[in-house]
Structures are given as C-alpha cells and as structure tokens.
C-alpha cells in the first residue's frame, strides 16, 4: 500500500462522496422539517440531467450547476404541492417522483443525445496554496474544483442555519412539533415548503456534481441508488451536519476503494467490498439502537386545526 494507493482512495472517495454529501445535506433539512423525501434519487437524477444539458449547451459549468439547482427545485415543487400543501402520503409521492424521473430523464436523454453522446470538458481544479503541497493528502484533497469547496462550506452554513438561527428553529419545530409552531404564529406549511425546496436544490446540485464534475456525461440511472444512501446518511446524522460530512466520505471510500485496490493489483470481490458500508450501518444501528431519533412528526402531513 503506497502513497499512490491512498491518494487514489482519497480522491475517489471525494469524487463519489460529494454528490452524497450534497444530497444528504438536503435530505437532512427536509427530514428535520418533518418531510421524508423518498424521491431524493429522482431529484438527483433530474438535477444531473438538467445540469448536464445546461452545461453542454452553454459550455459553462457554473450555469450547469445553476441548471442542476433549478432542476432539483422544480422536482421538489411536486413534493411541495402534493405532500406539503395537499398533505398526501410522502412515501407514495416520493416513489412516484423516483419512478417518473427515472423514466423522464432516460426518455429525454434518448431523444436528445441518443446518437451524439456529447461529453463535457473537465472542470478546472483550484489548488489551495500551501495545503496542496502536503504529500498524499494535498493533491487529492486540496486541489479540487471550486464546487467542492462550496459544498464543504455549505455543510457549515446549513449546520449554522439549522442550529443557530430562527429559521432553523422553525424548521426543526416543523418536524418535531408542528402544532406548537403553528400556535406560535408561524406558517408550518411555509416552513416546510422552504425546507423541501432547499432539499431539492441541494439534491439537484449533488446530481449536477455527478454529471458535470465526476462523470462529464449524463447516463440514465447514473445515480445508482445513491439517493437512498443519502437518505440513510441523513437519518443517521440526525440533524448534525458534520455527521453528513463524515458519513458521505465513509460511503465514498467504500464506493471507490475497489477501483483503488485494482489500481495496485489487489483483486477482491467488488460485491463484498460494496457490502461493507451497509454492514457497518446495520451493525451500528443494532449496537447503538435508540428509540426516538427521528423527528416526531416525520412523514406526517400537517393540517391546521386538526389534532
């Protein structure tokens, strides 16, 4: 195991971990507000598609990320209308979002790029002076596209908003005790709407990261269940954003370690390695199982004047 190996592991973990991080961060916000967003994967996929289309069309990765953000929020609007405003079952709507986005992106991709299969240019990375000179870690961690640094900053911004601001308090109240929030004169549905839109935006950015930076292409079903992994990370993080950071990169390592091992000539079963993160989560849950660790009103619609 030499430096090259560890550099490959870290770089791969970051590449695979960033989309997870952004999406999980978003999911955490809506879970804290009482909305369980099973359609996260759909939002990521549409974000990836939207980001790719815009980036391909304008040639600018920034506009691409803007497109990903808007695409994710557009899908989140479905969740807002059906789950927040109409108070319908969040799991059913989430699955509807997932299925229709899988179908829609695959369809649009085939119609638009079925013959040409365009690729995006690489996104330039920005080395941080000094830090990027550290051996092994330097080039793999501190020499990344700007979006990476933005994602890291977002972790702390979201953590700060959730825990230190009035809006964050309202969001958490909407998830734990919406009636109390309503009695305090705050519009629960508005708070939840904001939370779901934030989720959609972040999930869209996560998908965009996949398409614009990690892959450079859009492929149907490219999220490969990562939306669901992000949901799990968010549930385990329980509103603590730093845990999202740790969890995402642990999953990122697991997702990338097989390639790194092959790079140094070690042959291991991909399937067994892929099982590791899930095994760890299950074990952790079994050992540290606790009764109430999700917001009390999670997945419950709120309607005024109803007990």
């Amino acid at each position: 195991m030499d430096a090259e190996f560890w550099a490959a592991v870290i770089a791969g973990a970051i590449l695979a971990g960033m989309p997870l991080l952004l999406a999980a961060l978003g999911e955490m916000v809506s879970e804290q507000a009482g909305i369980l967003n099973i359609g996260l994967e759909g939002m990521m996929l549409f974000g990836a598609y939207g980001g790719f289309v815009v980036a391909n069309w304008t040639g600018s990765s920034w506009l691409g990320f803007l497109g990903a953000l808007i695409a994710g929020m557009a899908v989140a609007m479905l969740m807002v209308v059906f789950c927040v405003r109409m108070g319908r079952d969040q799991i059913v709507v989430g699955i509807a979002i997932l299925l229709s986005m899988q179908g829609l992106t695959s369809l649009l991709h085939q119609v638009q790029f079925g013959e040409s299969y365009p690729r995006l240019d690489g996104v330039p990375s920005i080395p941080i002076p000094g830090l990027s000179k550290i051996p092994v870690i330097g080039p793999s961690v501190f020499d990344q596209p700007l979006m990476f640094y933005i994602g890291i900053v977002l972790i702390f911004v979201v953590g700060w908003v959730l825990n230190k601001t009035n809006l964050g308090l309202n969001i958490r109240a909407a998830g734990w005790k919406p009636v109390a929030l309503d009695n305090a004169g705050v519009d629960v549905l508005k708070i939840r709407t904001i939370a779901v839109l934030v989720t959609g935006g972040l999930a869209g950015l996560g998908g965009g990261y996949m398409a614009i930076i990690a892959a450079g292409v859009f492929v149907p079903f490219m999220t490969h269940g990562q939306g669901f992994i992000a949901i799990v990370i968010a549930m385990l993080a329980r509103g603590r954003s730093v845990w999202v950071l740790i969890g995402s990169f642990l999953f990122g390592i697991a997702l990338s370690i097989t390639t790194a091992l092959q790079l140094v000539g070690v042959q291991v079963s991909t399937d067994l390695i892929n099982m590791l993160p899930f095994l760890v989560v299950i074990l952790a849950l079994a050992l540290f199982a606790r009764q109430s660790y999700l917001p009390a009103a999670l997945a419950l619609p709120f309607e005024r004047g109803k007990r």
């Binding site: 709507v93 509807a96 979002i97 229709s100 179908g103 695959s106 149907p220 079903f221």
Partner: peptide, 12 residues
C-alpha cells in the same frame, strides 16, 4: 424506461 414514467404519472 418510458414505462417507469407511465407508472410514476399514474401514481401522481
């Protein structure tokens, strides 16, 4: 995958 979209629409 168009079928997935159909099922999703039906659910909505």
């Amino acid at each position: 995958d168009f079928l997935l979209l159909l099922v999703g629409l039906i659910l909505f």
